[in-house]
Nucleic acid binder design. Sequence first.
DNA 1: CAGCATGTAGACAGCGTGTCCATATAACCG
DNA 2: CGGTTATATGGACACGCTGTCTACATGCTG
Lengths: 202, 202
Amino acid sequence: MAELTPDAQTPARRGRGRRPADQVRAEILTAAGELLLAEGMAGFTIEKVAAHAGASRMTIYKWWPSKGALALDGYFTVVAPTLAFTDTADIVADLTNQLVAFVHLVRDTTAGRVISQLIGQAQTDPELAAAYRERYSGPRRALAVETLTRAMARGQLRPDIDSESVVDQLWGACYHRLLIADLPLTEDFARTLVDNLIRGLR
Amino acid sequence: MAELTPDAQTPARRGRGRRPADQVRAEILTAAGELLLAEGMAGFTIEKVAAHAGASRMTIYKWWPSKGALALDGYFTVVAPTLAFTDTADIVADLTNQLVAFVHLVRDTTAGRVISQLIGQAQTDPELAAAYRERYSGPRRALAVETLTRAMARGQLRPDIDSESVVDQLWGACYHRLLIADLPLTEDFARTLVDNLIRGLR
DNA sequence: CAGCATGTAGACAGCGTGTCCATATAACCG
DNA sequence: CGGTTATATGGACACGCTGTCTACATGCTG
């Protein structure tokens, strides 16, 4: 694995007493995020985070309920959310743009690996699962549903469709390829997803 | 957690020397499967499997490359594959039946929890990921694609659709709700998925 | 200034991993 | 049948991580 922070000389010796809470939290979070990007969930350890942050493990145990919760917090600290939804008047273009952007985020940055491993960890870490739903997948889903609802209001889509299920058939299909990876997650794939749904198979 | 096998008196003392390979393998696999169903991936440990099987840890390390590979083998040993695809002449009915059956398998049996945790583990266990694709998701995907291809040949679907992407939009959507669980995975949801795709959104 | 909340260092037991032996015995082959 | 090889076993070991507990230092608040 790569060096985390080449110039990360542990900031001198640090005495024993209390340090400003905000500062410690910040150091722990950036250390967690960097460790996550560098080694993934496999090498992500409370002990390592504490060491990189120059903090005590006790402090971490005190403030974070689980390894996953800490990892998620660290992820948000280091990776920008990138949640913006373009909203032109064309639902097909909007969906395609969003899906393609998502595909690129997941394929061309470290985020893809991290996200899949966070979801993986969430399968056995209820604290992380709840936090992930509340802070990541929930908001993203809401934005997509909103976009679909506006298109229905504009008459671009049938008014009786279940937007939530559509979200699962677009983004869920991408997550499927991300998490199972039988087949590659490509830009063409994203376009095909929109096309399949809009035109119908018949 | 529950008792694994109430009558699991360790079969007497077992000497030191070699034992029939097949017998040992079988005992390890059933122990692995039972442990997986009883405790899930969180409590799944080489040490526990060895203990329940009355075998030596060395034997397991010798024959299985990773914890995940052992878990997957154990899963297949204990849970029947249930891979049969009904094939009437009606593609809508076929897809709906299969999806509904999948939803029930995942919701009403222990399999759902185990599958999601295996996929979760696969995100940080390449050995498991490869084995899962090859032995589970691959064959299942192939069956679904086959069904779609036949329907295209019968003229029930457009001849130019990309079957693979359709699979992602049906089963992948279900996996999405299984793994993320923002929203419940219901029978109605499965029906809606098919309906969305067949009729189109427009 | 006094007292409390909080961070720190260090220790500890517990558990799982991965690896190494020496030994015992099944499986195989002449 | 007998000798050789492959394999399972019990045991031990060092290692790393988890959680928790203690004693102590120090910022923060009133």
